Simulated scan of single mutants.
Amino acid sequence: MSTTQLPFTEDELSDFTSALTEWPSTAFDNGYSEVAVSPFTTFYFLYEPHSWRDTSLLMVDTHEEFERLTGHPYRIATHPVTERPHRYGSKRVPDLRSLITKMKGSEAFLFSFTDEENTNSSPAIAGCFYRKRDYLNKRDRDDDRPPAYSYVQFYYRWQWWLDHQEDWRRFLLSTIEKLRPEQVYSGFSIANPLAFEARSEISVWERSLTERFYGLDIDYPFGMSMGMDESLPAGLKPPTWGFFLADHWRAKLDVSREHVVAVAKAAGIRVYDCKTGLWLELGDEPRLYPVADGVPPMHVALNALLRPLRNDALDLVGTGQWDGDPNVRFNRRDAKRWLGRFDKESDWPNAAARIRKNAVSRSEPT
């Protein structure tokens, strides 16, 4: 993407917005790559230093289970050491389990798979897996920053999810029990391409589309998993659909599971009990919630409960702004406004838009 011109015109943005209103998982083709809104699920988790090998193997198990579930769709795999993309099944990509036996806990473990051959395009089905390295030296142990998260992120086709909801939910709840994550988010977001440099264009799309859809999430684990004040280990982000409230975070609210369940059910939110927390679903299925339809009341209700845990400093700036760059991305002020969009006193995206019916959304499920 060039930093001297816009990646889309206002007409193209309007057309993409209209298409997403009709079908919430849609792609925009700019001639050399595609930007697509996609269903996603991301697990953010910690692990004990002594269990780094078992955790690595569990991540491989999770990858293989998801691959079977989605019908073996992958075309590209990244090398766990060089991170270079190769044809799926290539001998250049080592066997993951064999590699784990040769690794050390002080080494990070990163591997990805995608069905998209163009690494600058959003994938339709993909998995990204990262186990942070185990910090063993004294300087890192004494660091006061929150511990960084490892993560597992999936993208999948919207029609596939509609056709396999129960299979997906069994997989999700099983993965929660195995990984024991600190946070899990599921809903719609722009699917990040495999190529790191493509993130710059994605961040411009995010800034524009989040003004039009309350339910479009931003989920970029590479930046959000870091153990910094501006990352998820320091606090939550507002859920857009599925969300795992771990007991660790619930204890910080000083409320019981029963209290959370009562608040959720009163708002029409589904609750699934897990060993280490509660899985919550805001409605029967993920939705984008066009701003024109008003602020979704379920999100307002859950936001009121979780607000003390929210990280209002969460970094959405991404690659930042260059001199002469006409593209609009999140700055710190607008990032905080977007994170607080379900607050009753919020003015996101603007005060006039929120005057509309914000008690009941007019959007119907797909």
Rank of each mutant, 00 (worst) to 15 (best):
D254T: 10
A195H: 00
L209C: 08
L232V: 03
D229M: 12
S225N: 09
E230S: 15
G268L: 10
R270Y: 11
E201F: 04
D254R: 15
C274S: 13
L245W: 09
A267F: 11
D247I: 09
G227L: 08
P233Y: 09
P193H: 04
V255H: 12
K275E: 10
Y272A: 12
A267P: 14
I218S: 05
C274E: 15
E230D: 13
G187S: 09
P221W: 03
F196Q: 03
D217M: 02
M224A: 15
G187A: 04
I190F: 09
S231H: 08
R199I: 04
K275V: 09
W249H: 14
R270N: 13
Y272Q: 14
G227S: 08
G268T: 04
S200C: 07
W205Y: 15
I269R: 04
A267R: 12
M228N: 11
P233M: 08
Y220T: 11
D254C: 10
R250F: 08
D229R: 15
L216H: 05
W205E: 02
Y214R: 01
W249T: 06
L245P: 06
S225R: 15
P193T: 00
Y185E: 06
E258Y: 00
F188A: 12
L209A: 07
A195F: 00
F188R: 12
F196N: 03
P233T: 06
L209Y: 06
D254L: 08
D229L: 09
S231G: 11
L253M: 02
S189T: 15
A251N: 14
F213G: 01
F243G: 01
V255C: 14
E201M: 13
D229H: 11
A266P: 01
S256I: 01
Y214T: 01
E206R: 02
K275N: 04
W205F: 15
W249R: 14
D247Y: 13
F222K: 10
M226V: 12
P221G: 02
D273A: 09
E201P: 10
H248L: 09
E197I: 10
L232W: 03
I190W: 08
M228K: 15
K265V: 07
P238N: 08
S208V: 05
S256G: 04
A267L: 08
G187I: 01
